[in-house]
């Protein structure tokens, strides 16, 4: 009886502790975030002595859980990277009813990108320049180049690849596939945002108003191209902006400028003489995952249909810098998977 009593007391104590702990944590977090939210709103409208004082004493962003990121690195200051989404020309924007974009010819510009895969050499210069231009944190990418391999190793007695499990002949094709936000004309990510924090600018750009973002992650799940991610420092959704801060000042996006083979071409689709218009008119182009009905505005020349539509299981991703470290394909690279065969992947250690 006494033991039962003690057990009951312990259970009550554990439950109460857990409840109190959760409430206290929430309260502490809410308090710090309240101050931050107020500071951010002021920061949005302009610099403010109180905000400066706040950041001087507490150079923190919502990265309070990651002490090593809690430094002055351009994120915390009022003129930091958060305020880089600009709309200096006051282009109108919409959150839904994307059919309003149909008469595009009436709008002054419609920015699109053409990626000519015949010219991409997989040098990853665009990835580096994007990270440099937009201060993209370590571990996440606004644009990335997958080096993919389609086809399979086929069993062949005379094959050149000899393993414990048999002899194979490679029947594969390897190419580079730059990926970025497709700035869709019917973007599901914009439609699902519960607080209209992300929007479609009428000149074609899909952007995020970071201070209004809840960080609920719905847009990230709703994007078929995995172009969105949680920024680990500002703890909001983040994505490619076509370098809007450069575009609004008449410059090309950083990845386009740095592309050594001129594989990325950026321009105005409404202008029939622009390079993108001429390329799209001259060559057959396609999109990634057209079946999703998102009307992507990144056009690929010479894109393998297997990669464009089937995605996931149809190809291998090579090279670690374009691979998520928490996917099974990372395990592949570290040797836990042996070979891709027509029967599927054979697991084993190298």
């Amino acid at each position: 009886m006494a033991r039962r009593h003690i057990l009951r007391q312990m259970a009550i104590a554990a439950i109460s502790f857990s409840a109190a702990e959760t409430l206290l944590q929430s309260a502490a977090r809410a308090k710090s975030l309240t101050v931050l939210a107020a500071a951010r709103r002021k920061q949005w409208t302009g610099e403010n002595a109180a905000v400066m004082q706040y950041y001087r004493t507490k150079p923190k962003w919502a990265s309070w859980t990651v002490p090593q990121l809690n430094v002055r690195d351009g994120w915390s200051e009022p003129s930091g990277w958060m305020s880089k989404i600009e709309n200096s020309r006051k282009v109108p924007y919409i959150h839904d009813n994307f059919n309003r974009l149909l008469p595009v010819t009436k709008l002054p510009h419609h920015w699109v990108m053409v990626i000519d895969l015949r010219r991409c050499i997989g040098c990853q210069a665009c990835v580096v320049s994007c990270k440099s231009e937009n201060n993209v944190p370590v571990g996440v990418y606004r644009t990335w180049v997958q080096v993919v391999e389609t086809g399979a190793m086929e069993p062949d007695a005379q094959g050149t690849v000899v393993t414990d499990r048999g002899t194979f002949t490679p029947n594969v094709k390897r190419f580079s596939l730059p990926r970025l936000c497709n700035h869709c004309d019917a973007p599901p990510c914009v439609e699902v945002c519960p607080v209209k924090a992300t929007f479609k600018r009428e000149d074609g750009l899909v952007l995020i108003d970071y201070p209004k973002c809840l960080g609920c992650g719905y847009c990230i799940n709703a994007c078929p191209y995995d172009a969105r991610f949680f920024n680990p420092i500002q703890q909001t959704a983040d994505k490619c902006t076509f370098c809007v801060q450069r575009l609004d000042r008449g410059l090309l996006p950083a990845c386009v400028t740095s592309c050594v083979g001129r594989a990325r071409i950026f321009g105005d689709l409404n202008d029939p003489n622009s390079e993108v218009s001429r390329l799209i008119a001259r060559y057959p182009t396609t999109h990634l995952k057209t079946t999703m009905g998102t009307k992507p505005q990144v056009f690929y020349i010479d894109l393998d249909g297997v990669v464009a539509e089937d995605g996931a299981d149809a190809f291998n991703t090579l090279y670690p810098y374009a691979v998520g470290t928490n996917t099974e394909e990372y395990d592949d690279l570290t040797g836990k998977v042996l070979l891709q065969t027509p029967m599927g992947k054979e697991r084993g250690t190298r």
Partner: peptide, 13 residues
């Protein structure tokens, strides 16, 4: 969410 959108295998959690 374990099914990947663009990678070639499952996402681990």
């Amino acid at each position: 969410q374990e099914q990947s959108k663009i990678s070639s295998n499952l996402v681990t959690v």
